[in-house]
Design a protein around this nucleic acid. Structure first.
Lengths: 200, 200, 200, 200
DNA sequence: TATGAATGAGGCTTCATTCAT
DNA sequence: CATGAATGAAGCCTCATTCAT
């Protein structure tokens, strides 16, 4: 065993976790490398042994988010049970993150802001939302096959569903007083039934 | 109001417009006072004759956004016709902005990011969304009175509606290929009817 | 006249002069932007209003050197009198610089070091020496036409002449005790007569 | 001397060789301890077991250069044959180094630059050139005794001779296209005969 | 009021050196 | 002896803001 054994991968993750915490607390723009180093309990220069730049840390945070999203998408696509039930579960899962890990979730706004600079941006939220829409489109297709959907639904409805989830997230992020988890059922209800009183 | 004052106000607005254009183009974080001055066709120092700081310009942009939102809210609340129709119109209006003035709309992501820094932030999106939920809650109340709503709707449903609108906006901002305006009808449809095939 | 009139070109030159003084004193590698700013009596940031980088200042110093060299070359090529006399005068001129402006001349060593990094280097001493050799080759050609040269001289002899001048400069730079100006005559003598006792 | 000591010395030399290679390739200023360690095939920290600092490596490189020079000087002073022939041989030897070991020779420019920082500099090229002048002065003295030199030569002529050699080296370093070895004969010729057509 | 040159605090990043293993 | 992770001082450069004209 070589001297001063360190698990590089573990240390990388530690630093990333620290960075995400600080991003969540102060926002990416206001986060200094010093802050991250302090949060991780290491020297400023050491951050650079594991990440090339401040931007690289945001990118890594995005990768983490992406991985988590992919797992959720995967469960929705390949899970068991009726498609609409899996959609409902996906809604609950996404909003559940806000409750379980509220702080880390706050980096979302920075990811959105970073992703706006289109070309060359290391944070490609468009791709994530594209994936999300594809997943939901597929769920709708399966649900249609199961015969439980009304006619005339298309890709735009998938966009609306993704939008609903993300928009609820957004509001909860911006206004910490809102009860994220409690929004899951109203969302599902609206998707399923709409608001209108059923014709008699 | 003296002509002098009018000029001053006009110049203020010019600078703000220029600033918003640059914010939209490059993002707030990457926008330099020089960029704004150049866009406005004035000298850098002159910006400070009208705004106290770079942040003040983002704040002003937020005020503009707030004013526009208030107008939309006002039309929805005090307009004519059935409440649900006014809700639908409001959806169309909000998404229409993305089509009509796509570029300026891109400052939304910066407003979200700026608003995340809770206390003391000059950008209080939580308040806007609070207003939005209040408006929609009221519309739902009116619609209920009109007898067209199902039972058991509450404030959380208002949150979901606001979320849907903003989440669709978000996707369109992050992925310019999406057709914002075309989302209005699916949104309304989902709100009204849900996705489920009506019981026979 | 616009407010705060400054002659940008003059200021540029002031800063360059200050930079060259500091380069000469401490060497390029040890020179900090702060040093240059202090020497120029301005703030650190102001340096960047006139030069893009520390390297750009060395490049500018090189340009200055190049311009001076070109003037000397021009006088040698287009002056009056026999070619060998013009060559002698050129030798005196080059070494005279060391006496007249000893300090600035000390940047030569940094120019040599900077130029060694071949491709992409902003300091191309090879080009200057190429020019010098071309000038001297032409002087030798003229002198040959005048019938005063021995047979068999070629481009390599021009290289040697350039080498002699630069090598003397080098020694004088490295050892400030040496009398640069006094080397001109021995150089000329060796070029003309060689060291060997004339055949009887 | 224990084998242990031999190993240590060998390792020191390996590291120095590696360092010189890198200095030659990238220049001293751009050379990192990592580069040297990599070139030597050891860990970065190990470099410090053999040398106290990065500067110490340049100093050691200088010592190596000094030793080589001293050997050349010694051969010139104590060799056999006429003094002028030994001078000619010395010229050939110095320029031959550029051909035989072109890369290591490139550290010369860094030595010049390092030596310019006068007091306290670890690289004292002035001393080397002083030695060189002393050697050549002695050779001239011997040649004068042999009766082959013209009258009136003095220390300044020695300076010019050293200058010629070093200046040719300089040009070859700065412009790799030049044929160092081929300059030896023209140098010797100029020294001996000068450029001028012999009086009839 | 308008200008734009000047300022200087502050951030990112580099890298020589140290030191625990 | 060897290692290479960790350190943190130091330097380059940026840019919001100021201010003399």
């Amino acid at each position: 065993m070589s001297p001063r054994t360190v698990d590089k991968a573990a240390r990388r993750k530690e630093i990333l976790t620290a960075a995400v915490r600080v991003f969540a607390r102060k926002g990416f723009a206001a986060t200094r490398i010093d802050d991250i180093a302090a949060e991780a309990g290491i020297a400023k220069g050491s951050v650079y042994l594991y990440y090339d730049s401040r931007d690289a840390l945001l990118e890594a945070a995005f990768e983490g988010y992406r991985t988590m999203s992919a797992a959720i998408f995967d469960r929705a696509l390949n899970g068991r049970g009726p498609a609409l039930e899996r959609l409902a579960e996906m809604v609950r899962e996404v909003l559940g993150v806000l409750t379980a890990r509220r702080e880390p979730a706050r980096i979302m706004v920075d990811l959105w802001a970073a992703s706006r600079d289109a070309e060359g941006s290391l944070v490609d939220m468009a791709a994530v939302y594209g994936d999300a829409r594809a997943v939901i489109t597929e769920l709708l297709r399966q649900a249609a096959k199961e015969g439980v959907l009304r006619e005339g639904l298309d890709e735009r409805h998938a966009t609306v569903i993704v939008g609903t989830i993300e928009g609820c997230l957004l509001q909860c992020l911006v206004d910490p007083g809102l009860p994220a988890a409690e929004l899951a059922e109203p969302i599902i209800q609206i998707f399923l039934e709409g608001l209108r009183r059923p014709a008699a």
